Amino acid sequence: MTVEPDPQPARETLLRPVRLGNAFEDTVGRLLETIRLGVLAPGESLPPERELATRLGVSRDTVREAIKSLSEAGYLVSRRGRYGGTFLADDLPAPSGDGVRFSRADIDDTLRLREVLEVGAARMAAGRTLTAAERETLWSRLRDVRGAALEDYRRLDSRLHLAIAEAAGVPSLVPLVAENRMRLNELLDHIPLLARNIVHSDEQHDAIVMAILAGDADGAAETMTAHVWGSASLLHGFLDS
């Protein structure tokens, strides 16, 4: 007789406290990790929201938003009634991108290079005395991405990040950021746009630009680091093979 391993230890290990700087993204990533690694079986229920919030160290609102986003993406289903709750879908979404697969190493290589380039760019931009034209470009790019339609979001997001690289005042940095951004967008194009993530990204964009314009190099670098690793949580959750 074969004894199936108890999934509880693995579940408890994976559903561990998240980084509060990216609470929503990390919560989505943790839940996807339990799904993709088979800790949750098709049709199996998630722990109650209150329990998830306690395990992950986040608010119930954050858990609710993460569950809503994964339900919209087809990973979870909610059922009402006596035996209701949130359950793993019987049929999970097929991988997008015509079967393209990305490994953790692929994702980490892109994201670690992004951290080196873009955190450095934000810090250097904040350390400079920007011209009026450079300041206006940052404001303009920030306004554009703030009001972007979903279909334009990633393009305008890229333009803002390139404007930050330009504001660093190192011309040879810009093509490096652009090349890395192409790799990043290739990854991002294989995951769904989540409304709550866009709201959080916009808040971080505001904080990064404000820190740069205020000459707060440490604040700009710190917020850019959190921004980069918020994307990492989602990319690893959806794409790790």
Rank of each mutant, 00 (worst) to 15 (best):
T2C: 09
E4N: 06
P5Q: 13
D6Q: 09
P7K: 03
Q8M: 11
R11I: 10
E12A: 09
L14C: 09
G21N: 07
G21A: 05
N22Q: 07
N22A: 13
N22C: 08
N22S: 11
N22R: 12
A23L: 04
F24G: 00
E25Y: 05
D26K: 01
D26H: 14
T27V: 04
V28Y: 03
L31V: 09
E33G: 09
T34G: 14
T34W: 04
I35P: 00
R36L: 09
G38D: 10
V39P: 01
L40N: 06
L40C: 00
P42W: 10
S45R: 15
L46M: 11
E49P: 03
E49M: 08
E49K: 10
T54D: 10
T54K: 11
T62A: 07
V63D: 02
V63Y: 01
V63L: 02
A73R: 04
G74F: 06
Y75L: 06
L76V: 08
L76I: 06
V77Q: 08
Y83F: 14
F87E: 04
F87W: 05
L88P: 00
A89N: 01
A94W: 03
G97D: 13
D98E: 13
D98S: 14
I107W: 01
D108G: 08
D109V: 13
D109N: 13
D109Y: 09
L111T: 03
L111Q: 14
L111P: 05
L113I: 13
E118K: 04
G120T: 01
A121F: 02
A121T: 06
M124G: 01
G127D: 03
R128M: 04
R128F: 05
R128W: 00
T129K: 11
L130Q: 04
A132D: 12
E134S: 11
R135A: 01
R141E: 13
D144F: 04
G147R: 15
G147Q: 15
L150D: 15
L150S: 15
D152Q: 14
Y153V: 02
R154L: 14
R154I: 11
R155F: 08
H161I: 13
A163I: 07
A163M: 06
A163T: 03
I164G: 03
A165W: 00
E166R: 14
G169S: 04
V170N: 09
V174D: 06
R181H: 05
M182F: 12
M182T: 15
M182Q: 15
R183G: 06
L184C: 04
E186H: 09
E186M: 12
L187I: 02
L188T: 09
L188R: 12
D189A: 15
P192G: 08
P192A: 10
L194R: 09
N197F: 11
I198S: 10
S201T: 14
S201C: 05
Q204K: 14
I208K: 01
V209S: 04
M210A: 14
M210G: 04
I212P: 03
I212Q: 04
A217E: 13
D218N: 12
G219W: 01
G219S: 05
A220E: 06
A220Y: 01
M224L: 05
M224R: 08
A226Q: 12
H227A: 05
V228L: 08
G230Q: 04
G230E: 02
A232T: 11
L234R: 08
L239D: 03
D240M: 12
D240N: 10
